[in-house]
């Protein structure tokens, strides 16, 4: 049913665009209402039929995926929740995907936040992702929520040498030394991978400057689309990979789904949001091309 809807709507949109391309070759303009109809279709069809596109991870996203994939089982992975509710729709899919992937691979996951709001978002992630999808994982053994500490990059400056100078207990007040997951963890240097998800200050940039670089620890990140361009100069030397905006999230979700069949039914908000975006983009670009063709044809005719 879905496939039928998809094929029909693609045929309609494709044939329509082709028709207007042919008209453009005769120098004819497209009426604006036609464009509106195409945009309407391009956005509503993917919503109605839950059309998603095969996303292919770009190298910068694939780098993050490969890193988690290639770490030996039982490696230590830290995920920092550096965002608040307003940024959540865009970056929460990323932190959830990181969390899923790390747990599925059997890594030990340490959650924390440089943003005060990150602490409760991390707690939500434990409820909605870990407890639901990985009921066998044990708190304190396979994962832990360290919570938020005030001090922005100052926190990193301290925990790069000694985590316990900042964190004596986890978020629930349990002594860190009583948690098996903390055995042998003295500082961030004992982590195999640091991941920061966010899009403001403090965020990925601070993780690079105050933890990754001084400690020679690999840093990966997920960032809102607005701030992603500012992080590209760090890739690939200081930042091993980056998920930028909904697109990055979708690519990662797709990569995860391809290799882990058990995630076939988990929600993929990133991929879902990309459907209408992609189609609308294509339609707009098609019309820009059509517009230019009819413009040049008409100009040549006029002499």
């Amino acid at each position: 049913m879905n496939n039928l809807g998809l094929i029909i709507s693609f045929l309609v949109i494709g044939a329509g665009l082709l028709w207007f391309l042919l008209r453009a070759l005769q120098g004819k303009e497209v009426e604006r209402r036609i464009i509106f109809v195409f945009i309407g279709l391009a956005v509503s069809v993917p919503i109605l039929f839950s059309i998603t596109f095969a996303e292919k991870a770009s190298p910068i996203v694939k780098a993050v995926y490969d890193k988690i994939e290639n770490l030996p089982d039982g490696s230590r992975v830290l995920i920092s929740y550096d965002y608040g509710p307003s940024m959540a729709p865009e970056v929460e899919p990323m932190s959830n995907a990181f969390l899923r992937h790390s747990l599925a691979k059997g890594h030990k996951v340490y959650l924390m936040g440089l943003w005060a709001t990150g602490q409760s978002i991390a707690a939500t992630a434990i409820d909605s992702v870990v407890r639901r999808e990985f009921p066998e994982k044990v708190y304190g053994v396979d994962f832990v929520n360290l919570g938020y500490k005030a001090g922005n990059q100052g926190v990193l400056n301290v925990i790069i040498t000694d985590i316990r100078k900042m964190y004596l207990t986890d978020v629930g007040g349990i002594d860190l030394d009583s948690l098996p997951i903390m055995d042998g963890i003295k500082s961030l240097r004992n982590m195999n991978l640091l991941m920061s998800v966010g899009g403001g200050f403090p965020g990925i940039k601070e993780w690079i400057q105050f933890a990754g670089d001084p400690g020679h620890i690999p840093v990966a990140g997920g960032s809102a689309a607005v701030s992603a361009p500012l992080l590209y100069p760090y890739y690939p030397t200081q930042l091993l990979g980056l998920l930028g905006g909904i697109k990055g999230a979708a690519e990662y979700e797709a990569e995860l789904k391809r290799h882990y069949p058990q995630f076939a039914d988990t929600p993929q908000p990133g991929i879902k949001m990309m459907g209408p975006q992609t189609l609308a983009h294509l339609v707009i670009m098609a019309f820009i091309i059509i517009g230019n063709i009819s413009f040049f044809v008409a100009r040549r005719r006029r002499g």
């Binding site: 919503i47 109605l48 209408p276 975006q277 707009i284």
Partner: peptide, 24 residues
């Protein structure tokens, strides 16, 4: 800006299809 503007429309159409018509 094109990217952000499309998501606004997604929001409105989701309201029509889901909250009102219950199609999803």
């Amino acid at each position: 800006t094109v990217m952000g503007r499309v998501s606004l429309l997604v929001g409105r159409l989701t309201f029509l299809f889901d909250d009102w018509l219950g199609l999803m």
